[in-house]
Nucleic acid binder design. Structure first.
Length: 274
DNA sequence: CTCCAGGCTTTAG
DNA sequence: CTAAAGCATGGA
């Protein structure tokens, strides 16, 4: 077992996990158990430290984006000098934008459409239990997130049985569309082209594409606009637009390559009703 | 009962 | 091209 110890000023387990960018975690002991792909870690804070215990330190170092200076990012966000954002940055400075597995992110956010977070978490858990491989971590049993190939081999009815509702047919279809060549081609694209390419996948529209480009490709010039962000835009930025594409343009034009960080701060701030 | 959730596909205009 | 209807499910 490896142990990664970091300062917790810019790394809060709770805020990083609960801000809506990932769904596979649960409270455990002093912190949380976190699952990504076929891997697991135990994440917790003690005194002024945040600690990761896991078998694959390299994987989770990258997963939690530990190579990046978040003090610098928070300062850049503060420098926009927007009162609401100053407040949000203080509360959310412990959020790290994760580097998540591409396939897992694609399927997870297809499921997220017109859905709420507790139910999304439940659906993903049932998918892992039904199709994932069994693993153990520190004596605890868990299931991996299934491969695209495995998802592609299931019927829409199978997913309906897991409670996906009308999204049942999107998963196998998107899984078949996710070829290795296509995934490889994604990496070379700039963010607007990547977003367009992701939108070709069944069940992936502009908002989900923004989430994938942010949480799997770390494209921080993406700004996903969902119902909560729309609420922030209306109520706090006093925006007039109702078209989500235009709201997206307003935010990305304003925040450029800080868009992803700002979006997460605003989303979390609004959803937690702080 | 209605309304809403990290919106999308399909169809109509 | 844009706009709107239709969509499963479960909790408030």
């Amino acid at each position: 077992m490896q142990k990664i110890i970091t300062d917790n000023t810019y790394f809060s387990p709770k805020d990083t996990l609960c801000c809506g960018q990932m769904f596979r975690y649960r409270p455990h002991d002093k912190g949380y158990l976190v699952f990504s792909r076929d891997k697991a870690c135990y994440l917790y804070s003690a005194d002024d430290k945040t600690i990761i215990e896991c078998e694959d330190g390299e994987y989770f170092h990258n997963f939690f984006d530990l190579g990046r200076d978040y003090g610098e990012i928070v300062e850049k966000v503060r420098s926009f000098n927007i009162p609401l954002l100053l407040k949000a940055a203080n509360i959310c400075k412990g959020i790290r934008i994760l580097n998540q597995d591409l396939e897992e992110t694609v399927f997870s956010f297809i499921i997220s459409q017109n859905n709420n977070i507790p139910r999304i978490k439940g659906i993903i858990e049932r998918i892992c239990e039904a199709l994932g491989n069994r693993h153990t971590f520190g004596g605890l049993e868990y299931h991996s997130f299934p491969s695209a190939e495995k998802i592609a081999s299931q019927s829409a009815d199978f997913f309906k049985g897991l409670g996906l509702g009308y999204r049942d047919r999107y998963l196998p279809k998107a899984a078949k569309e996710l070829s290795a060549e296509r995934i490889e081609a994604f990496k070379a694209l700039d963010t607007p082209s990547l977003k367009k390419a992701l939108t070709r996948l069944c069940g992936v529209g502009p908002k989900v594409a923004d989430c994938i480009s942010l949480f799997a490709f770390h494209r921080t010039d993406s700004f996903p606009v969902d119902t909560w962000v729309e609420k922030v835009y209306r109520e706090d930025f006093h925006g007039e637009e109702t078209n989500r594409a235009k709201i997206n343009k307003y935010f990305t034009d304003t925040f450029k390559d800080m868009s992803g960080y700002v979006q997460q701060y605003l989303f979390y701030y609004k959803r937690e009703d702080m």
